[in-house]
Nucleic acid binder design. Structure first.
Length: 285
DNA sequence: TACCAGGAGAGCG
DNA sequence: CGCTCTCATGGT
């Protein structure tokens, strides 16, 4: 086992890993276990930040510090948020919540599977998908077998009925067709980060099952476009309740408001609103 | 049981 | 345009 200490404060691991941006982290013994770049990882929060454990060999830690966005200046990000009551409340309630920088394919596939599903269910579908099609990953003996996220080629080689057997329902044909377009080089995901945001979004929108919301999730969570602002049912509810109480507002109006109101790190602000709203909904019920 | 879930896409007036 | 319906499945 190789250990690494990341000095980064504040960093709320639990909130970050369970706030609906990534779906494969599991809590065990006061730590979090997952797979990043095909490597098994265990993370634990500490006073100084994060303690990481991986299996040897390890050449460097860039792949992990990049994924965790260790070098992001969180205070600087938050300083760009609008100084209004909703954002103050969200920031106060979600101290240390951060955005990850994920693999574009895993992110895209995960969000194709996310539509009209609760986060618990999304996690289940993805777990089955990885068990059936992912390459085995070397993990400590005490762990049950773990798997990498399956490649687009591997999913493209599956049949629609096989995928439906993973409980993904009507999302199966979308995931299959998208996999085939990626595997065939029709859309090149690693290139998206080098494009202007509108061009990158247009590329994603060519994929079946990918509309504005899912495209924005991939742009934000995987391509580094920190002003991308995915509006899902939760964020729409939050924006409506907090900024347009009692008024009728369309989805497009909410997007335009968000683009104008939340600044260069709008996507970060969105994650705070999303998590804040969900935690509060949970407390109220 | 009924309703809803980090939507997309087609069909309609 | 803007609205409605369907798609599949399971949690609460």
């Amino acid at each position: 086992m190789r250990r690494k200490r990341f000095d980064v404060v504040p960093y709320d691991l639990a909130a970050t890993l369970t706030s609906g941006q990534a779906f494969r982290w599991r809590c065990r013994d006061d730590g979090w276990e997952g797979v990043v770049q095909g490597r098994w990882v265990r993370l634990q929060s500490a006073r100084y930040g994060i303690q990481a454990e991986v299996m040897p060999p390890v050449r460097n830690w860039m792949w992990l510090s990049d994924y965790l966005q260790i070098d992001e200046n969180l205070a600087g990000v938050i300083a760009t948020f609008p100084d209004d009551e909703p954002m103050r409340a969200a920031v106060a309630a979600c101290r240390g919540l951060r955005l990850l920088r994920q693999d574009p394919w895993e992110c895209l596939a995960s969000f194709i599977l996310s539509s009209t599903k609760q986060i618990v269910q999304i996690r289940q579908i993805i777990a089955v998908l990885c068990e059936r099609y992912g390459e085995p990953v070397i993990a400590p003996k005490y762990c049950e077998p773990s798997f990498a996220f399956p490649s687009p080629e591997r999913i493209a080689a599956a049949g629609e009925s096989e995928l439906r057997a993973c409980k993904m329902g009507f999302r199966a044909p979308n995931l299959l067709a998208a996999s085939r377009m990626i595997a065939g080089g029709e859309v090149v995901l690693p290139r998206l980060a080098t494009l202007p945001v509108d061009a990158a979004r247009a590329e994603l929108l060519r994929l079946p099952g990918v509309g504005r919301k899912i495209a924005d999730c991939v742009l934000l969570f995987a391509c580094g476009f920190q002003d991308a602002f995915p509006v899902d049912v939760w964020v729409a509810k939050a924006l409506h309740r907090l900024y347009f109480p009692g008024r009728r507002v369309t989805l497009e109006q909410l997007r335009r408001f968000a683009a104008a109101h939340f600044g260069p790190f709008a996507g970060y602000a969105q994650q705070y609103l999303f998590h804040y709203t969900r935690v509060h909904a949970k407390l109220k019920s």
